[in-house]
Each structure stands twice: as structure tokens, then as C-alpha cells.
Nucleic acid binder design. Structure first.
Length: 563
RNA sequence: CGGGGCGUGGCGCAGUCCGGCUAGCGCGCUUGGUUUGGGACCAAGAGGCCGGGGGUUCGAAUCCCCCCGCCCCGACCA
């Protein structure tokens, strides 16, 4: 591509609306332009990178036996009603006004519909079906450029299997393929255990990149052997345990004490002996959750423990139900509530909790003796500095960007849509599904996040829009222009993709700045002085290293660098 | 949806509090000339219903009301 003819609108100044480096650089390098909030036009350079990433994904999916589909973005609402996901997605699902259609945010339903109609025997499986296609999600708040958009390109794949054991195989194939994909794209990433969220299913893992721009919070052990989304992460924290004495429950006056810390100070006890009450709705049932001291309740874990949906109880409703404020609620004598407790509190005694009467607490509580607890679950949010659950040192808590997510769905969708097959005994059984997604834009943006400096991007050769950025430093010299023109042809003949800055009347400084901004792995610089000595300069963008090679050996040198 | 910020030539911004004359500046763009290895210089130009609608006023980019859009924090997020 000759830069004089191409459409690569670079900009010198950092766009005001872009905050994170990848967003700023994608605009500055002429890869994208925003059309609306969360909606981006991809310009030729951006599109080339996207296609390179898509091709790597395609190759690795094909390598595990995947078959590529092209499913429609338009999808009948009825199909989504059958699986209950019109409600599950809520406002995130785009609805059409003049037809009973939705814009598909993912394709489990459509895959399941196909499978229902065409997979009838265990002999038809396993299947891995995938596509690389535009998804639509009405995100309440798009942000960070293409990292969270309302329209985005996604590789989504679906496995169809006869059993949970067979699903494990398909799932593992995907896990391996994903590692290859992200490695080939030159990303530093890690894999974490994750929550299945509204996708449902029995297990999932996320492929993450550490980044302050990330929206997920990840707990990692020091040695890297443990990594989990905080939604599911656990740690080794000691149980609260028992105290020696077994005094009867006693009411104590605790005027104007609001927080756990204040209460611990007021009573001069260890904060973990304070059983903090957190009040929720579990569906439409009131729910009391006991946590040790300042432990933070993890809503994802609570949701996983009870199913349905959960939300904090409003202060007025709590007062109406109990006659007390949130700070004075406790498990004893509380009627009509389901009472759950964190595992740390199992078997504990000598606890202090609210008396369900403002400004009073109860002391010497033995949970087993004095209350009826409906269940003990791991409900706490891990904190940095705690011991990782299986050794490996202390936990670090970092932010991460989700690049990919793999799910063992099980039979959730095949049950809902009655997608069954006949097994080898002639019995009807639901197809066992898995679903797997990779955000293509996110790979591109994350690559830039990890590979840039103050001047611009440096692309890995595997996904660079071009392999070589050829610069004719000046158009004034006939030798320079003729040599650069010749090299342009020769490099292309050698199978390389070349971006050729052949612009006239553009100063050398501008050309160099643009080359650094656009970030091709190697720059071939044809200048007057070096050429007088028969030399051409090769600059490695990432390191800034420059070498002079003979004109005659230039193509071979560049080819070997890119081999 | 809650909180905050913003909307002025293609881009980045000033002007808005405290209404006033022809709406400025930098970058980019066009033309001519000079320059030529790290975002050159000089000169002359083109380009604006100041986000939209309504109101107040002799007069509105500026004040008031409504609406729309964009960004950030939070809630949400397969």
C-alpha cells in the first residue's frame, strides 16, 4: 500500500474523548473512528489487524475440528422467550420495533435450534460449530474505546456432545486452542476460574490480561499457580472458632455505634467475633447473611449459593419487617428470614450480633446453640495479602480485561428448547453443550495496551497490518525515490506486506513520526546519505535498534527478520 | 439508572461567571515561495445556523426552560 494513495488518517494530537492508550492510539493511527457511543467504524488499517486476528482464531478453531458458520444477527424473539433470556438480558438485548426480532447478543439459541432439527443421534456428535460475527449488546455504559462496545466482533463457538464427559473433552480442546490463539497474537495473559453468570452452566474459565483499564478483579497467587476472578476466588483464612467460656446470651447497650470497627473498639473485642448481618432479598424472600467481622459479602457467591437473583434490602423495608436499622440486625429472634452464614462462622461461639432493636447487641452467641442457620457457604470476598487457597504464597488482587470466556453449559439450552438425541440405548437425552467466546477487538486493543510507547504502537509481526514500513525519506532525490520504488516491488515479491511512505512534500520528521505511530515491526528507511554509501537503514520499532545493510542484501535481511 | 464533566470550522481549545460591535488561537487543509534525517518557515486563502428547540432582551456562544449527544466514576456486564 502506497501511503500517498491510502486512507490512513493519522492525527497528531491525542483525542480528548479517549482515556486509555489503546483507544487513543487506535484513533491517532487511523484505525478507527467513533460513530456513536460504543459504535466504531473500522478504517482500512484497523480492519487489516482485525482480519489478521480473525485468521489466527480461524486457524486454531479449524485445528480442533471446528466448522465455520455464518449465523444471522437477526433472531426471532420467540426463540429467546423460550430460553427465558429476553428477561435475563433485559435492556442489554436490542429489540426491533417493526418486527418481532432481536439483534443477537450471542448465539446459543440459534445453535440449539439447528441442533434440535438436525442432531438426532449420539453418532452425530461431537460437533464444534463456530463463527466470527458481529454481536449486538445494548451496554448501559460503553467505555474504553473498543473494549466495551455496543457492536463488536466475536468468535463464538459451541460444542455439542452426548455426555458431560464428552463435553469435558470439547472444553479442553477449546482451552488449548485459546492458549494458542492468545500466544500467537503476542499477548501476555492468564487463565482464571470464573463465574458462569447469566449464561448458566457448571463451570467456566476466563482468559484475562492484567490491566488497570480492566473491569474484572482477579486474585492471583504470588507464584501464579492460582488465579481466579474475585467473584469465585477463595483464600485460606482461619475459621472464627470457639472461645473457652459458654456464657448465656446477654443483651448489651451499644448506643450510637455504627460500624463494625466502632463496635469492636467500644466492646474491646476482636472484630472477627462480631457477626455482621447483611440483609438481602433472595428473589422475594428476606435473607439474612452473617459475615465475620469486616469480611465483605460477595454477591456472586451469594447468587451461586441460593440461585435466582439477589439484591440488597431497602432500609425502609428492613425497618418495616424488623423494627430495627441495618446496624442492629442479628440472627436471634428474627422471624421470616432465611439465615445464611459464611463458612468462617461455622461452629463459632462467643459472637456478638445485632439484637434486632436499635442500639442493642447480643453477646455470647453460639450459632449452633442459639440460632437456626439455614446453611453455611463460602460467601466472603477475598482480600489482597491473604494466603492463596492451595499454597503458592499470598494473593495479589489486580484488575483484568476479559479476552475470552469458556463455559460448560450442560443442558440448560437443550432442555429449554427440547434439543434431544437418542443415545446408544435408544433413550432420549438432551444434547450437552459448551459455549466459548473471544472478543476480536479486545485482542487488538489489549495488544496495543501491552505494546506501545509514547510515540505509538509496536505490532507483533503476527497481527501487524503490514510487515514493513518503507520510508522514502525525501522525494527530492531521484536515487532515493527510484531505490524505494524498487524495494517496494522487491519486498512484495518476497511475500511481505509493505506500507510504503512515498509521499512527496512531506517532511522527513512527519514520516518518521507516522512510522513510529503506526507501529509496523520493521521500518526500512531509504535516505540520501546512507544510499550514497550503498546502505539502507532497518529500524526495529519495538527496540528502536537501527542497522545499516547493503542495498543488495536488504530484502534478504528483512525477510530473515520476519521469518 | 445515580453522580460529575463537556458540546464553539476536520482535530485540540479560548471566549460563557459579568449579554454588546467583524467569534478568536494552535494544528490540519488550499495556493505561491523557501526548506529537506525526527511532527520546517514566510505569505495569501478557504472553512462556523457557537449541539437542537423554545424563551428573556434593543441585542444571546454568553442568561432561563426543555431536549439531544459525548466522556469519566458508580450501578450493570455472557
Amino acid at each position: 500500500m502506497r501511503l500517498s494513495k491510502g486512507f490512513i488518517p493519522t492525527v497528531k494530537e491525542t483525542p480528548a474523548d479517549a482515556v486509555i492508550p489503546s483507544h487513543q492510539l487506535m484513533i491517532r493511527a487511523g484505525m478507527i473512528r467513533a460513530l456513536a457511543a460504543g459504535v466504531y467504524t473500522f478504517l482500512p488499517l484497523g480492519h487489516r489487524v482485525m482480519m489478521k486476528v480473525a485468521q489466527i482464531v480461524r486457524e486454531e478453531m479449524d485445528a480442533i475440528g471446528g466448522q465455520e458458520f455464518h449465523l444471522p444477527a437477526l433472531s426471532p424473539v420467540e426463540l429467546w422467550q423460550e430460553t427465558g433470556r429476553v428477561e435475563a438480558f433485559g435492556d442489554t438485548l436490542f429489540h426491533l420495533k417493526n418486527r418481532p426480532l432481536v439483534l443477537a447478543p450471542t448465539h446459543e439459541e440459534v445453535i440449539c435450534w439447528l441442533a434440535k432439527n438436525h442432531i438426532s443421534s449420539y453418532k452425530d456428535m461431537p460437533q464444534i460449530w463456530y463463527q466470527i460475527q458481529t454481536k449486538f449488546r445494548n451496554e448501559p455504559r460503553p467505555r474504553s474505546g473498543v473494549l466495551r462496545g455496543r457492536q463488536f466482533l466475536m468468535k463464538d463457538s459451541y460444542s455439542l456432545d452426548r455426555s458431560m464427559e464428552a463435553l469435558d473433552v470439547s472444553y479442553d480442546l477449546h482451552a488449548k486452542a485459546y492458549r494458542k490463539i492468545f500466544a500467537r497474537c503476542g499477548l501476555r495473559f492468564f487463565v482464571v476460574g470464573a463465574s458462569s453468570g447469566t449464561m448458566g452452566g457448571t463451570g467456566s474459565q476466563e482468559f484475562m490480561m492484567e490491566s488497570d483499564a480492566g473491569e474484572d478483579v482477579i486474585a492471583l497467587s504470588e507464584d501464579g499457580t492460582y488465579a481466579a476472578n474475585v467473584e469465585v476466588a477463595t483464600s485460606r483464612v482461619p475459621a472464627v472458632g470457639r472461645v473457652a467460656h459458654t456464657k448465656p446470651v446477654e443483651e448489651i447497650h451499644t448506643p450510637s455505634v455504627r460500624t463494625i470497627d466502632e463496635l469492636a473498639q467500644f466492646l474491646k473485642v476482636d472484630e472477627q467475633r462480631l457477626a455482621k448481618s447483611v440483609v438481602y432479598w433472595g428473589g422475594d424472600k428476606p435473607l439474612l447473611v452473617l459475615m465475620a467481622g469486616n469480611d465483605e459479602l460477595n454477591e456472586s457467591k451469594l447468587l451461586a449459593a441460593i440461585g435466582g437473583n439477589v439484591r440488597p434490602m431497602e432500609a425502609e423495608r428492613l425497618m418495616a419487617l424488623t423494627g430495627a436499622d441495618g446496624g442492629s440486625i442479628g440472627p436471634i429472634g428474627l422471624r421470616g428470614f432465611t439465615i445464611l452464614a459464611d463458612k468462617r462462622l461455622e461452629g463459632a461461639n462467643g459472637l456478638i450480633s445485632g439484637a434486632n432493636r436499635n442500639d442493642y447487641h447480643l453477646a455470647n452467641i453460639d450459632l449452633a446453640r442459639d440460632c437456626s442457620i439455614d446453611g453455611y457457604h463460602d460467601l466472603r470476598t477475598v482480600q489482597a495479602g491473604e494466603d492463596a487457597p492451595y499454597g503458592g504464597g499470598k494473593l495479589r488482587v489486580v484488575k483484568g480485561i476479559e479476552l475470552g470466556h469458556i463455559f460448560k453449559l450442560g443442558t440448560k439450552y437443550s432442555d429449554a428448547l427440547r434439543a434431544n438425541f437418542l443415545d446408544e440405548n435408544g433413550r432420549e437425552a438432551p444434547i450437552v453443550m459448551g459455549s466459548y467466546g473471544i472478543g476480536i477487538e479486545r485482542i487488538v486493543a489489549c495488544h496495543i495496551e501491552q505494546n506501545h510507547d509514547a510515540n505509538g504502537i509496536f505490532w507483533d509481526k503476527t497481527i501487524a497490518p503490514f510487515h514493513v514500513h518503507l520510508v522514502a525519506v525525501t522525494a527530492r532525490s531521484k536515487e532515493v525515490v527510484e531505490t524505494a520504488d524498487a524495494l517496494y516491488r522487491e519486498l512484495q515479491s518476497a511475500g511481505l506486506e509493505v506500507l510504503y511512505d512515498d509521499r512527496v512534500e512531506i517532511s522527513p520528521g512527519v514520516k518518521f513520526k507516522d512510522a513510529d505511530l503506526l507501529g509496523m515491526p520493521y521500518q526500512v528507511i531509504v535516505g540520501e546519505k546512507n544510499l550514497a554509501n550503498g546502505k539502507i537503514e532497518i529500524k526495529t520499532r519495538k527496540t528502536g535498534e537501527r542497522t545499516l545493510v547493503d542495498r543488495t542484501g536488504l530484502v534478504a535481511s528483512v525477510s530473515s527478520l520476519l521469518a
